[in-house]
């Protein structure tokens, strides 16, 4: 029997006030085990205060072939950035 154990993605909050960040993946048969395994594998050196696990198959990813249409249109919207606006140097706190 081919028995492939599901893959999970692990996200760890290193301390309160910071976001959970992806730190890697692992195999586990169920969510409980994924959480335990994440604790044992990825927080051996006090790396975390909170863990999220999600089965990899539930992640929907954008397609790199569509990167151009998805992300490039944002490149020319310079007016969304503060440096677009010219102000005299005397103006402070802005």
């Amino acid at each position: 029997m081919k028995n492939e154990i599901p893959l999970w993605e692990v996200f760890i909050r290193s301390k309160n006030g910071l976001e959970h960040r992806h730190c890697g993946s692992l195999h586990a048969e169920d969510a409980e085990m994924a959480l335990n395994n994440a604790r044992d594998v990825y927080t051996r050196r006090s790396e975390g205060v909170s863990i999220w696990v999600v089965e990899s198959k539930h992640i929907t990813a954008s397609n790199p072939d569509q990167s151009a249409e998805l992300f490039e249109p944002a490149n020319d919207k310079v007016y969304r950035h503060p440096t677009f606006y010219d102000l005299p140097d005397e103006v402070k706190h802005m």
Binding site: M1, N3, I5, E29, D30
Partner: peptide, 12 residues
Amino acid sequence: GAWVREAATAYA
């Protein structure tokens, strides 16, 4: 370990 992994899969 095969029986252990199979058990975990069956349990899940």
